[in-house]
Amino acid sequence: MTARLALSRVMAVAWKDLTTERRSKAGFNGVVFMAAITLLMFGFALGPDPAPIRTAAAGLLWLTVLLSGVLAFNRSYELEIEAGALDALLLYPGGRWPIFAGKLLANLAFVLLVEAITVPIAGVLYDLPLLTPLPGLVGVLFLGTVGFVTLGTYYAAMASRVRAREVLLPLLLFPMLVPLLVAAVGATKAVLAGDPMGYGSAWIRLLAAFDIVFLAATFMTFDYVIGE
C-alpha cells in the first residue's frame, strides 16, 4: 500500500466516524452527561468538606475520563456492524492498520472534546486552579488520552463483536490501564501543584513510554484482531 493510499484511508475512516458522530450526537451527549454525573457523584461521596475532594481531584478527574470514555469505543465498531459495513471495510485490499488509525484518530478527537467540557466542570466543582498550569495540564491530558484511546480502540475491535461486550471491554481494558492511570494522576497532581518541570517529568516520561509501546504493539497486531 502506498503512503498516499494509506493516508487517504486513514482520513476517510476518521472523517466518516466523526461525521456520523456529529450528525447523530447521541453518543457524545451521553458520554458528556455521564462524565458530569460522575464528577458530581464523586463530590457527594467525598464531600461536603472540600479538602479531601481537592486532594483527590487529579485521581477523580482521570477516573471520570476512563469511566465515561470507555463508553465511546464499542460504538466505533457498532456503527460498522449496524450498517453491515465491516465486511466492506475488510474487503479493501491491503493491511487493515489504516482502519485502526482512522478510528483511533476519531476516538481521540471524541475523548479530547469530552475532556474539553469535563475538565472545566471539574475545575469549578472541585475548586481547581486550571488557568496557571494550563499548558502542562493540556500536555498531560493529551499524553494520557492517547494511551487510553489506543488500547480502548484496539480492545473494542474484539469486545464489540462478542456477546456481553459491555462487560468484556472494561475487563480487558482497565487492568491494562493501571500504569497509565498511576502516571497520569501523578503527572496531573504535579502540574496542578505548579511544578511542571519537577517530579512530574518522571510521570510524563512514563506516559510517553506507555503510549509508544502500545501504539507500536497495537498497530503491528491489528490485522490479527479485525480479520475473520
Partner: peptide, 10 residues
C-alpha cells in the same frame, strides 16, 4: 451481501 454497507448518517 444481505446488508448494504451504507452508512445511514452519510
Amino acid at each position: 451481501g444481505h446488508t448494504n454497507a451504507i452508512y445511514p448518517d452519510l
